[in-house]
Design a protein around this nucleic acid. Structure first.
Length: 273
DNA sequence: GCTGCATGATGAA
DNA sequence: TCATCCTGCAGCA
């Protein structure tokens, strides 16, 4: 699940559920017990997302409240991390649940994150400084273009580097390059301004659609014979994890190989090298 | 009950 | 490039 669209969706949902509310916090698993104790009973002021990172702020009206007031809760889901969300009648958390935040009306349960920690403003600034522009925040794309132009590495590899663009993961990488007709092995530095503009705008659209729908669907409307709600899960994507299956546009078998330590997928005919 | 796998990222070598 | 960390679930015995 967790590419940029998921993270921004969580930020929005958690804001809707909890902004301005006093929350109870605890760590069923115990690994975040001390942090949860600091958050317990404080007001969740706001949530925002940058790339694949979530930042939760506590304290009424942004004013520090209690020990945790000056700190932000930083969550990174990694590959396995998940939030479960419940209303007033939550299921009891699994033993692996790192953090539970709840009010009378709602509860979220976080399991499997790579990061769940309280960080000071300096650490947060340092962390954000390592992230490239995020299409879902409406960031200026210029630094991303400059970063791509500087790299001789494959564009498929550069797209997964969060310093270049924040929020792209393995699914969006594959689907984006397919839709652009760009071979993943092509050197990043060869991209020109017009091609980059296409890439950025398409990526922003794809991520925004994923954020709204809560899943990645990149098949564009004119390619569909059925409405999106009728799509089976294996009909949402063009190339990702479709190795050996016919390209939905030209019928050529989809190829996959390793790029930057992760599997990449492409149609050899629609994405010539 | 096991095994393997997954949309991520880091640090050591 | 490799090992490592993180959890849950499908698929198999």
């Amino acid at each position: 699940m967790p590419e940029g669209h998921t993270i921004h969706r969580y930020a929005r949902l958690h804001r809707e559920l909890f902004a301005g509310e006093r929350v109870a916090a605890w760590s069923p698993q115990g690994r975040f017990a001390a942090g949860a104790a600091m958050l317990d009973g404080t007001t969740l002021h706001g949530v925002d997302a940058h790339g694949k990172h979530l930042f939760y702020r506590f304290g009424a009206n942004g004013r520090p409240e209690g020990e945790a007031g000056a700190l932000a809760l930083h969550v990174h889901l990694g590959l396995f991390g998940k939030f479960r969300q419940y209303g007033a009648d939550p299921r009891s958390p699994t033993a692996g649940t790192r953090l539970v935040l709840s009010t009378e009306d709602a509860e979220i349960q976080l399991a499997g994150p790579t990061a769940c920690e309280l960080i000071d403003p300096g650490t947060e600034a340092e962390l954000r400084g390592r992230l490239g522009p995020d299409p879902l925040r409406g960031d200026d794309p210029a630094p991303a273009f400059a970063a791509l132009r500087r790299r001789r590495a494959a564009i498929g590899q550069a797209l997964l580097d969060q310093r270049v663009i924040a929020g792209v993961g393995n699914v969006y990488r594959a689907e984006l390059l397919f839709l652009l007709g760009v071979h993943p092995d092509r050197p990043a530095c060869e991209i020109d301004r017009a091609a980059f503009d296409d890439l950025w705008h398409l990526l922003r659209r794809l991520l925004a659609a994923g954020e709204r729908r809560g899943r990645i669907i990149t098949i564009i409307p004119q390619d569909r014979s059925r409405p999106p709600s009728r799509l089976r899960s294996d009909e949402r994507l063009y190339v990702y994890r479709r190795t050996g299956q016919p390209c939905r546009r030209c019928g050529t078998p989809i190829r996959s190989w390793e790029l930057g330590g992760r599997p990449v997928f492409a149609c050899p005919r629609c994405q010539p090298i």
